[in-house]
Design a protein around this nucleic acid. Structure first.
Lengths: 197, 197
DNA sequence: GCAGTTGTTCACAAGTGCTTGAACAACTAG
DNA sequence: CTAGTTGTTCAAGCACTTGTGAACAACTGC
């Protein structure tokens, strides 16, 4: 009973415990990513690939996360479209690895998703303001506040300027590039605050 | 047939068209807000209150948006908890108005929601790193990359510094306050870039 | 060629979240 | 007091999302 545990056994136990804690990390990444409008599974797969020393096959990913191969297959294809994972070489059964530099993807999302959202609001506001001015000329007493619409319009324009700057912020490593970014960003920030009452 | 349309009739038509375009604005705000993890209905209600000249009762809001009173009731209570709408005075049937300055709410969301997400990931990473070091000492050959874990840990720490700065950015109206924010933000940005490979 | 493995596709089960209608409570005007 | 209006609550319906199992296709090593 007092005999020491064999080394390889305790090493195996430690590896098991580590695996369990890695899965907790992937869950945390999944929850975080879910809040940002993506699916939890995308964050979990990216994280497990990012933390694994060697590239992994889809079967290995499915086993590590405890999900079906079907889910891994479709999720990896979406991650590949966003350039967040990539096969290590050409061919059908190439193992996958995570792309660690996620900034290009964030930048793309801001460019497409956020820009379209703000642009839709901006166009709707422009259209409503135009109609409000026509109605006012016709002497209708309006329930809607054209001044507030114009304030929100300015807000969308300021948000678009801000997005443009963020998206252009590809690699502000150099101090002068950062200073230029900061100069323009502060200008936009002042514009944003002005639109509040 | 050549008689002119009566003025009050065309004015009424213009008011109807305006109402329709206002609803398009509220839909755009709803979609935007939905991408940020909130419900579309919250954005629509806030927008309709923000664009209406006078405060509105729940029934008016429900009619304007074409949804049930039940939905307006529960949604307005949640918006009130987040301080995005408020009753114009005390009492049960006080009409509601939108709070236009949304920055305090954004700040709160960053403080609670985002902070907790990053903190959960940070703790999971710390725990995994600890276990990886134990396992390495026991001579296990690990599939997981402790160096990558440490890089992600630094990323979470940098993200928390950045969040702290954003949350502290209450009202950077004064030029010197903004300069200080910019100084610290640029420092954090450099830290963020360093953690990438 | 053949057995075994890996990746893909799709119909469907399980779960979740949004919205409604109906019943009820609180208030207001006559 | 009564009738009508407004806000609240909740069970239920509905749509949507996530994840699975099974069948199939593509490839590998023998």
């Amino acid at each position: 009973m007092s005999r020491l545990v064999e080394p390889e056994v305790s090493a195996q136990r430690a590896a098991d415990r580590l695996h369990e804690r890695v899965i907790r990390v992937t869950d945390a990444v999944g929850e975080f990513i879910e809040w940002w409008g993506f699916k939890s599974i995308h964050g979990r797969i990216w994280a497990v690939l990012a933390l694994h020393k060697a590239p992994m096959s889809q079967v290995e990913v499915a086993r590590a996360l405890g999900v079906s191969r079907a889910l891994v297959s479709s999720s990896i294809r979406e991650l590949e479209e966003w350039r967040l994972v990539r096969p290590t070489h050409d061919g059908r059964n190439a193992p996958w690895e995570a792309v660690i530099d996620v900034w290009p993807t964030i930048s793309d999302v801001l460019r497409s998703r956020e820009w379209m959202m703000v642009e839709a609001a901006r166009l709707a506001l422009e259209s409503a303001i135009e109609e409000a001015e026509i109605a006012e000329e016709l002497g209708a007493d309006l329930a809607w506040d054209a001044g507030r619409m114009r304030a929100l319009l300015r807000l969308t324009e300021a948000a678009q300027s801000f997005l443009k700057i963020l998206v252009g912020l590809r690699a502000p490593r150099a101090a002068d590039g950062l200073a230029e970014w900061v100069r323009r960003a502060s200008h936009v920030f002042r514009g944003l605050r002005r639109t509040e009452r």
